[in-house]
Nucleic acid binder design. Structure first.
Length: 593
RNA sequence: GGAGUCUUAGCUCAAUUGGUUAGAGCGCCGCCCUGUCACGGCGGAGGUUGCGGGUUCGAGCCCCGUAGACUCCGCCA
């Protein structure tokens, strides 16, 4: 038996008269008592099948029993549709198949949800993922994902890059996310860890002389989940030798252009704008600024330099800054009650000390809890610098630089959302954020930590600052690529000298002994002629999510896990019996529920 | 670990200030229907309103607890 001569999206009026065989699922049935229509669906499309009792009574009789999602094979003759019955919504809408033979390959039970309806219950979708994936939107997402990974492989191949697989069973890393551990049966008491990223291996491949490496790599991080996060996710990982920041960025711009061209048919302009980290924070309050709208943060410290308002006074005296942003025309949308809630939100969620505002009433009055503390000169300067007009709402941040940036950055995004500033915008604002700081002080741990990772190269002109212990001022040769306020990926030029790497570890408070224990292999590798190298990693799922136009990463992963890291289809993770644990020399301390 | 929102038929949702027998669309089942394409018509089945407790003459609705889902914060270079 032959299942098919054509796919369900293939036939056209020019095929009229030929005998064909199609296989697929019953998408819908329209039973008129006499004549019966079946929309037959496979992954390539839909074709209408007609069962005519006056011509083929036996087959027509058989067809009455068909139900949604039955799997069938139909043989018949391609016929142009009767005058006035063509369907312009279908690719195959000019023809139909007059069935002469019907084989039911497999009956289907009634589905738990209809494939053509909106399903809000994600549990149900995940439990029956194989049905969910039959839905056109999800099927499109799978295809889109294939197109993106294919474009990626083609691009890197053409650029002379080698795809090299690196171990899944690897070592725990002392920094970064929580590791997934895998007990090592052959070495009792020891554990592998699943890789958070192929970071060290890709650098070792450079020492190995691979020169141009890439991988579409699965990565694992045992942290709490989010809409755009999964326990396991996919990175496009790249690393090259004898390269520069500019070369890596140009390479990645080419990749993204290729991906958007082949998946969406969109030409994106390159090169992308570059913005130093410091500027991104100052203007947008974020290291991944969404530049599709203005609402920029404005410096006011000089205006209030002589302020007698105690809150501002103490902030300025303590070395902090006063800044504000102007939500143009927001006054009619933000009521006084809402603005009070904003302050509550800033305090509880953002850890701000407060969130002062000025709301201009239609009569031009300034409604604000703080404006009474301002002098006339301050008010005038403020209004001028922020271009304050009737209907505007100002939000103030007064704190240390970092705090003000964080709070106003979040306020900015929330304003944009509530004011619908990006609605209907087709803009694709790519940009590079560059010159990241190398180190940041972690107050809780009372130590310096790497902003990017410990292998990131300090800027040559800032090396003296590193030696002088002025860690906060040292910039890194690190860069993030951002699209519409979403970080697509990041990378850096690495340290390739053993000496410099040791100095970096030193700054991070990792002593000689710990260096040897945890990174000895890398330091030794660097001592055997490691070439200068650098690279970048992109969050593949996130990119596909943006291209697909969905807001959940789960929509672009075939079998994702839910918020608690469970696979509702297979019920993973599961408990295992004592015997299996004993072989691995481990024991569970979990309390039995 | 914390906050918010949600949970009513197989699915998507409704149910006035707490008030009769909890409704609709789709789906499902039966009958009718020979040109539909979200076919149509008639009829039918289908509910412990997540679970437990409380307030009340009376609770889907109010209160407390609990479970689950989602979103966010923490966390995640």
């Amino acid at each position: 038996m032959k299942y098919r001569t054509h796919h369900c999206g293939a036939l056209r009026p020019s095929d009229a008269g030929s005998e064909v065989t199609l296989s697929g699922w019953v998408d819908s049935r329209r039973d008129h008592g006499g004549v019966i229509f079946i929309d037959l669906r496979d992954r390539e499309g839909i074709t209408q099948i007609v069962f005519r009792p006056e011509e083929y009574p036996a087959v027509a009789g058989q067809s009455h029993g068909l139900r949604s999602e039955d799997v069938i094979t139909v043989t018949g003759k391609v016929a142009p549709r009767l005058e006035g019955t063509t369907n312009s919504k279908l690719e195959t809408g000019g023809i139909e198949i007059i069935a002469t033979q019907l084989t039911v390959l497999n009956k289907s039970d009634v589905l738990p949800f209809q494939l053509d309806a909106k399903v809000a219950n994600e549990d149900l979708r995940l439990e029956y993922r194989y049905l969910d994936l039959r839905r056109p939107q999800m099927a499109r997402n799978l295809r889109l994902r294939h197109r993106v990974t294919k474009a990626t492989r083609d691009y890197f191949d053409e650029q002379g890059f080698l795809e090299v697989e690196t171990p899944i069973l690897s070592n725990p890393t002392p920094e970064g996310a929580r590791d997934f551990l895998v007990p090592a049966r052959l070495t009792p008491g020891s554990f592998y860890a699943l890789p958070q990223a192929p970071q060290q291996y890709k650098q070792l491949l450079q020492v190995a002389g691979v020169e141009k490496y890439f991988q579409i790599a699965r990565c694992f991080r045992d942290e709490d989940l989010r809409a755009e996060r999964q326990l396991e996710f996919t990175q496009v990982d790249v690393e090259a030798s004898f390269t520069t920041e500019l070369e890596i960025q140009t390479l990645v711009e080419g990749l993204l252009a290729r991906i958007f061209r082949e998946s969406k048919g969109i030409e994106i302009p390159t090169p992308f704008p570059r913005m130093p980290y410091r500027e991104a924070m100052d203007r947008f309050g974020s290291d991944k600024p969404d530049t599709r709208f203005g609402l920029e943060i404005v410096e006011l410290s000089d205006i209030f330099a002589a302020s007698e308002f105690k809150v501002f006074r103490s902030v300025l005296d303590g070395g902090g800054v006063i800044r504000a942003l102007n939500a143009k025309g927001a006054a009619e949308k933000f009521s006084k009650e809402q603005l009070k809630k904003w302050e509550e939100w800033a305090k509880t969620e953002l850890g701000a000390k407060g969130l002062a505002y000025i709301k201009t009433s239609p009569t031009g009055e300034w409604e604000s809890p703080i404006v009474k503390f301002f002098s006339e000169a301050e008010k005038n300067a403020l209004a001028e610098r922020l271009n304050l007009e009737t209907g505007d709402v100002l939000f103030f941040g007064a704190d240390q630089w970092q705090g003000v940036c964080d709070v106003l950055g979040r306020v900015r995004l929330r304003c944009a959302e509530l004011l619908g500033l990006t609605e209907g915008s087709g803009a694709l604002n790519f940009l590079w954020v560059v010159d990241f700081p190398l180190l940041a002080f972690a107050a809780e741990e009372n130590k310096w930590v790497a902003v990017h990772h410990p292998f990131t190269r300090p800027k040559a002109e800032d090396l003296s600052l590193l030696d002088a212990g002025e860690f906060a001022k040292v910039r890194a040769v690190a860069y993030d690529v951002v699209l519409n306020g979403v970080e697509l990926g990041g990378g850096s030029i690495r340290i390739h000298e053993r000496e410099l790497q040791a100095r970096m570890f030193e700054a991070l408070g990792i002593g000689a002994e710990e260096q040897q224990e945890k990174f000895g292999h890398l330091l030794r590798a660097f001592s055997f002629g490691a070439p200068p190298h650098g690279g970048l990693a992109l969050g593949m799922d996130r990119i596909i999510m943006l291209i697909a136009g969905t807001d959940s990463i789960r929509d672009v992963i075939a079998f994702p896990k839910n918020n608690r890291g469970q696979d509702l289809l297979t019920h993973s993770p599961v408990t295992v019996d004592f015997k299996q644990l004993r072989e691995l020399h481990i024991q569970s301390t979990a309390k039995k529920g």
